[in-house]
């Protein structure tokens, strides 16, 4: 069972590596969106410092959204997905592995690059670990919940826009906790509470989302 999960993760990472530009596009999107805000709002350091957590988190949400469409699309197109559904391994495990691979490709790079964006926004250095930790806990939840939406909208026309309509409202708690933890730390308070809540969301999502993804895949493929 774990062997199957490992195979899926390795395979998805390999596929992503072969198509590096796709990964880079989502990451560049994140960087560009965060660069647009100072241009639109103004570059007063005080203002930038106060909006930085929210802007970085919203950009992370949108960037995750962008790569979700590809999560099952290629496998659906070449028939791999049908084989995965027919396999004797539990579909929930396979779904969890797909979500994990998606996070490694699209979520983890955001965690790593976010401090650089924070630098541009003149965020005080002590906040960097909090921001990175909040993204580290929050972005896997985005991948897990997003995969449910991606599985439901598989092969539909206008799937990308529909996906954002389905999934973005469900991302609200993650956004609030994630940006909130950095805001708390910026206000000189302990961000532990919000980070723990994010961790709780991650545990709940990791426990239940794989089964929902599996059910959604079965509905979409039957």
């Amino acid at each position: 069972m774990l062997e199957a999960a490992r195979c899926i993760v390795v395979r998805d990472l390999l596929v992503a590596w072969r198509r590096r530009s796709d990964v880079a596009t989502a990451l560049l999107f994140f960087v560009i969106v965060t660069s647009l805000f100072p241009l639109g709002i103004g570059a007063e350091p005080e203002l930038l410092r106060s909006i930085a957590p929210g802007v970085i988190w919203v950009a992370a949400l949108l960037s995750c959204m962008l790569s979700l469409g590809r999560l099952f699309a290629a496998d659906h197109a070449d028939g791999t997905l049908e084989q995965l559904l027919l396999s004797s391994e539990p579909l929930g495990v396979i779904a969890a592995a797909k979500a994990l691979a998606h996070w490694l490709v699209s979520g983890l790079p955001l965690v790593l690059i976010a401090p650089l964006i924070a630098l541009q926004y003149d965020l005080p250095a002590p906040l960097y670990p909090v921001l990175a930790l909040s993204l580290l806990l929050g972005t896997p939840v985005l991948s897990l919940i997003g995969a449910i939406g991606a599985a439901l909208t598989l092969g539909l026309r206008g799937g990308g826009v529909l996906l954002s309509l389905l999934v973005l409202p469900l991302y609200v708690p993650v956004l609030i906790m994630g940006a909130g933890s950095v805001d708390m730390a910026a206000a000189g308070l302990a961000p532990d509470g919000q980070l723990l809540l994010l961790a709780a969301l991650l545990i709940v999502a990791a426990a239940f989302a794989p089964w929902a993804i599996a059910a959604a895949l079965r509905i979409s493929m039957e």
């Binding site: 439901l152 206008g158 529909l162 929902a212 959604a216 509905i219 039957e222």
Partner: peptide, 15 residues
């Protein structure tokens, strides 16, 4: 968005 009625019902239910 889903033309197949069975799939539309079940997908909506899961959502």
């Amino acid at each position: 968005a889903i033309d197949d009625r069975r799939r539309a019902e079940r997908a909506g239910a899961l959502l």
